[in-house]
């Protein structure tokens, strides 16, 4: 992809506030990233890292609860989504940008047959007759690999298994030929054998239709299998960004390393003790001064507890927000990389 081409989605300085009874929290605190056409970008982080709020912001969902700072912008094909009126946003949501949620049981309407649910969004966005839309719905169900799709059109969500429901969700997301799909933990609720089927399907869609996917997940295995580029989030900030190869082979941020090392190995002998990240994610109301990771980082210095590092390019190619990794080249970079210890 050429450098000059405009990214499909460009998030700049996204900063969100949610007022709570105990004070205001900032689930996303100055996040910038972009997604190019036909690219799969993974957004990785633990619960509370702000990955879901970022995705809701792109979709313009839950807008009443989330407040944005003045400088935040989310440009989709050059248009700032945060400045759009709800009516204009509706034209984009579900049409050019679609979303797949984690739990397909709660995101499908239980009292309508699935064929009708898919056709509905086509009628809404494309101004075609319901009957034509139903034909398209059938094609979509075939495309996502639902066996005996014609009979299934009239099935209700409860008649389908978890994997099938997730396929229906994907079919619905594809209904209006979107350019970007946001998949929020699309396989977390599924068994591994079904997860493999769904991940294969997502990759096939990207390769055949050139759809860009923002994959939100906490499962590093899923990231390694599917993504082109990875963003690692911690406490509302991106702490590391790089190509999937760079992140897995040469992680620079101590948090990324910790995450990679805490996954038990599937191949080779098991370690007696797993490497862990000590402590827990800090309370969003009591974030530490300086770097958010300072309370759990074993390399933390005085500087880390005073000033927050910004995301900067490291000579190794990754973007990283860590004083140690950026300043002393070969500082923590010389330790055995986490990737080599998990494979």
């Amino acid at each position: 992809m050429s450098e000059k081409e405009e990214p499909l989605l460009e998030v700049k300085d996204l900063e969100t506030f949610i007022p709570t009874s105990k004070g205001e929290i900032k689930p996303v605190n100055g996040v910038s990233f972009s997604i190019n056409k036909g690219e799969i970008v993974a957004l990785v982080g633990e619960s509370g890292s702000g990955k879901s709020v970022s995705s809701l912001s792109i979709m313009g969902l839950n807008a009443s609860a989330i407040q944005y700072s003045k400088d935040s912008s989310i440009a989709f094909k050059g248009k700032d989504l945060l400045k759009l009126k709800e009516k204009e946003m509706r034209k984009i949501r579900g049409n050019e940008v679609a979303m797949i949620f984690q739990d397909p049981m709660f995101s499908l309407n239980p009292v309508h047959p699935i064929g009708r649910q898919i056709a509905e969004s086509i009628v809404l966005h494309k101004k075609v007759k319901y009957k034509e839309a139903l034909v398209t719905a059938l094609d979509l169900l075939n495309k996502v690999g639902i066996p005996d799709a014609k009979r299934r059109l009239n099935d209700y969500p409860h008649q389908l298994s978890g994997g099938m429901r997730q396929r229906v969700m994907i079919a619905m997301a594809l209904a209006c030929d979107p350019q970007l799909i946001i998949a929020d933990e699309p396989t977390t609720a599924l068994d591994v054998t079904i997860q493999a089927q769904i991940l294969n399907l997502l990759r096939k869609l990207q390769q055949e239709s050139g759809i860009a996917i923002l994959l939100i997940t906490h499962d590093l295995g899923v990231v390694a299998e599917t993504a082109d580029r990875v963003l690692v989030m911690y406490c509302g900030k991106i702490v590391e960004e790089g190509t999937v190869e760079d992140i897995f082979e040469n992680p620079l941020h101590p948090y990324t390393r910790g995450l990679l090392a805490s996954v038990p190995a599937l191949y080779g002998p098991s370690k007696e003790k797993l490497d862990t990240i000590p402590g827990v994610v800090p309370n969003p109301l009591e974030l530490p001064k300086g770097c958010n990771f300072v309370t759990r980082c074993s390399y933390a210095t005085e500087k880390c507890s005073q000033n927050a590092p910004t995301l900067l390019e490291h000579p190794a190619g990754n973007m990283v927000a860590c004083w140690n990794a950026l300043e002393e080249e070969g500082g923590i970079g010389h330790y055995e990389t986490a990737a080599s210890s998990i494979t």
Binding site: V192, D219, L220, A224, A265, L266, I342
Partner: peptide, 17 residues
Amino acid sequence: AVPHPDPKMRNRERIIL
């Protein structure tokens, strides 16, 4: 079916049920 933690192994032979 378990995802492999190494992106280079992405195109390995897999049995997909």
